[in-house]
Amino acid sequence: MKNNRPASFSRLLSGVTVFALFLCSCSTISYVGDRYQPTDRIDVYYAERDVKSEYKVIGHLSELVGGINGEEQAKQNIIAKCREVGADGVIILGFQYSGSDEDKQYQKAQAIKYID
């Protein structure tokens, strides 16, 4: 079967696909809290009781989960944001759902700073 579409249509379709993938990969992270000098290393925890050092919570994070491998990408975006705001660690709190049909999933976290 012969493809009768003009070449410009194929280029347009390719461009739309790339743009859609770009939009899906954009971070939608929200951060509320204090900021310090950026850090290079972030300790990742999944429960507050696992943090063995004294710490204070310096901020709260929320990241919309979506796309392929969305949970892992959301976690990586949260870790990157924690580096940016100068946290020493992050406590991944789990997921929260919102929307009329609970169609949106957010990964929640707390940015922490160790107390010397």
Rank of each mutant, 00 (worst) to 15 (best):
E84F: 02
V44R: 07
Y97V: 11
S8G: 10
V44F: 01
S98L: 08
T28A: 04
I42Y: 02
T28H: 11
L23A: 12
Y31I: 03
Y106T: 05
S8V: 14
V51N: 05
F9P: 08
D116P: 13
A7C: 05
V32E: 08
E84I: 02
N77A: 10
Y46N: 09
K56A: 08
H60F: 08
G99Y: 07
V65K: 01
A111D: 02
T39G: 03
P38G: 01
E72G: 07
D88V: 00
Q96I: 12
I29M: 04
L93F: 04
Q76H: 06
L12Q: 15
K2D: 12
I68W: 10
I42Q: 02
G94R: 04
I78C: 01
V32F: 10
A7F: 15
D40R: 03
L61H: 02
P38I: 04
V16G: 09
F9V: 14
D101I: 12
G33I: 05
R41L: 11
Q110A: 05
D116N: 14
L23K: 08
K81D: 04
K108G: 01
K113W: 05
D40G: 08
Q107P: 10
N4Q: 11
C82T: 07
P38Q: 01
D101T: 09
Q37Y: 13
V16S: 14
R83M: 14
N69I: 00
E102H: 10
V51P: 03
L64S: 06
Y114K: 10
Y46S: 14
S8Q: 15
R83D: 12
V65T: 00
R35V: 08
S8R: 11
T39A: 04
S27R: 03
K108F: 00
Q96P: 00
D43M: 07
K75G: 07
I68Q: 06
S98M: 07
L13I: 12
R35K: 14
M1C: 15
H60I: 07
Y45K: 07
E84H: 01
R41E: 15
L13A: 13
D34N: 09
F22Q: 10
A111F: 02
G99W: 04
D43W: 00
A20P: 03
G67H: 09
G33R: 06
F19R: 13
K75M: 10
C26N: 05
D34K: 05
I112P: 03
E54I: 06
I112Q: 03
L13K: 14
L13S: 12
S14G: 09
N69A: 06
D116Q: 14
E48L: 04
G59M: 02
F9T: 14
D50M: 05
V65L: 04
V85I: 08
D116M: 06
G86R: 04
R5T: 12
S100C: 09
P6V: 13
